[in-house]
């Protein structure tokens, strides 16, 4: 486990210098995706390269040729689906605070909001609470500008200063949260791609079986 710790001089190290970034998981996730892509690419190459060679001399008539074509099409569709879905893992998603409100990240939000103290300590009681300070500062600023009473305006100014300090103190946690959301999206894409790969395998198997039936009869 890695936790922020004092250095040799007893000074507390800066937050970002000690907390491991969740982004460190991204290369491993993408490496897994590349392996899957390579595997399905090899299957596709074998089908395209080997299928027609096997079929030569065993296909007699238009009906057989049509059957072989359909079977290859089904098998290659399976390969294409798998490659298309897995390649989405390699696309860099855009992660902003607005992304945290999307259904794709509901699981992450629920996990954090179940035990916010483990993630934010006393800094926030939920994801929304952590992300509230910028909006609060904007609203304070607007209220300050619309205040005509100088004394109340001065109070708004002090509140704005507090909100800005809160923004600064929440910023490292926000960066960590966005990094976690970024990784979570990639992990979810990889998980979904695996299910699509299963479907792709089924299509490849069905296409291959059809191909063997047609060419075997020939």
């Amino acid at each position: 486990m890695t936790t922020p710790a004092p250095d040799d001089s007893g000074t507390i190290l800066p937050f970002d210098a000690t907390l491991p970034s969740p982004l460190e998981a991204v290369p491993d996730l993408r490496a897994a995706a590349r392996w899957i892509l390579a595997a399905f690419g090899a299957v596709g190459a074998a089908l395209i390269g080997g299928g027609p060679l096997v079929a030569v001399g065993r296909v007699h008539g238009v009906a057989d040729a049509f059957g072989v074509g359909i079977a290859l099409f089904v098998a290659l569709t399976g390969v294409s689906i798998a490659i298309w879905r897995v390649s989405r893992v390699l696309e860099p998603p855009i992660t902003t605070p607005a992304t945290l409100a999307t259904p794709a990240l509901r699981g992450l939000r629920e996990m954090i909001d179940r035990s916010p103290a483990d993630f934010f300590g006393t800094a926030a009681t939920s994801v929304d609470d952590l992300l509230s300070h910028r909006a609060v500062a904007v609203n304070i600023h607007r209220a300050m500008l619309s205040e005509s009473d100088p004394s109340r305006r001065e109070v708004w100014r002090r509140h704005l200063k507090r909100a800005r300090v809160n923004i600064a103190r929440a910023a490292p946690l926000e960066r960590w949260l966005l990094a976690m959301a970024h990784v979570y999206q990639i992990q979810a894409a990889l998980r979904a791609a695996r299910y699509w790969c299963l479907m792709g395998v089924a299509l490849v198997a069905a296409g291959t079986a059809g191909f063997l039936i047609v060419t075997g009869n020939g």
Partner: peptide, 9 residues
């Protein structure tokens, strides 16, 4: 600083 989240490097 004790509030910072734990994590694995």
């Amino acid at each position: 600083p004790g509030d910072w989240p734990l994590g694995l490097a």
